[in-house]
């Protein structure tokens, strides 16, 4: 199986309020189609790592290889393209554009990518919403739907460009257990049915146990 994501000796420091070595020699690897969870106590650096892996944070030392391409060599505009095309990101808080419709929120990354006509994008966005059971909300403004629905919409958005990898930072952390189960089952199904590669930060042990592999983190290190 080929590797979709790989890091070699990633180090990161925060300088404010004082110098703080938050990530120490992080070297991890994710195979194509793997469903991996990252666990660790609060404040150990999981989110910080995920922001680096998602290319949003470029202030680090070390090498990040995504889909066989070295991210450390790309400029911001090209990194934005990579995020658009190859990475689907699901946040802990349901981050949608509130004034746009649910459907438009899902369509935006595909419209930005611009590979397909608006009609086709609309159709596939609708299909994703159907798959996640929120198609009935498609034409509502995003701020008008519930938290659980928002999280499912943001999963649909993460999927719209058929990314190489989906990253999620505590995607169930803000949901009740019923909605959390629901989200987990969706991610599980993506992994099984669509051979999607997933990297999910969680502090929910039950959740983690059901993934293919658990990466355990201590203070800034892989255990």
């Amino acid at each position: 199986m080929s590797t979709v994501l790989k890091t070699i000796n990633i180090n990161k420091y925060f300088y404010d309020p004082e110098k703080f070595h938050v990530l120490k020699n992080i070297s991890i690897e994710l195979k194509n189609g793997e469903f991996v969870s990252i666990m660790g106590k609060s404040g150990c650096g999981k989110s910080t790592l995920l922001y680096i892996l998602s290319t949003m944070d470029t202030q680090y030392e070390g090498t990040l290889i995504l889909d066989h391409e070295n991210m450390s060599l790309l400029n911001n505009t090209n990194l934005a393209k990579i995020r658009n095309e190859k990475i689907g990101f699901i946040f802990q808080f349901h981050y949608l554009l509130p004034e746009f419709t649910v459907l438009k929120n899902v369509m935006l990354p595909a419209l930005k990518l611009g590979r397909q006509s608006e009609e086709i994008i609309k159709k596939s966005a609708f299909e994703k919403l159907e798959m996640l059971g929120v198609a009935s909300q498609a034409n509502k403004k995003a701020y008008k739907i519930s938290g659980g629905q928002k999280q499912r919409v943001s999963i649909a958005r993460a999927l719209i460009n058929n990314p190489k990898i989906i990253m999620a930072d505590e995607p169930t952390g803000n949901l009740d257990s019923k909605n959390a189960d629901n989200v987990f089952n969706i991610l599980r199904a993506l992994s099984l049915e669509q051979k999607m590669s997933l990297l999910v930060v969680t502090h929910d042990l039950d959740f983690a146990k059901k993934t293919d592999r658990i990466i355990k983190m201590g203070d800034g290190i892989i255990l």
Partner: peptide
Amino acid sequence: MDDIAILKATGFSGND
């Protein structure tokens, strides 16, 4: 601010 962050996270560049 949030919109800008989401747009950037989902692939819009600074120039966009």
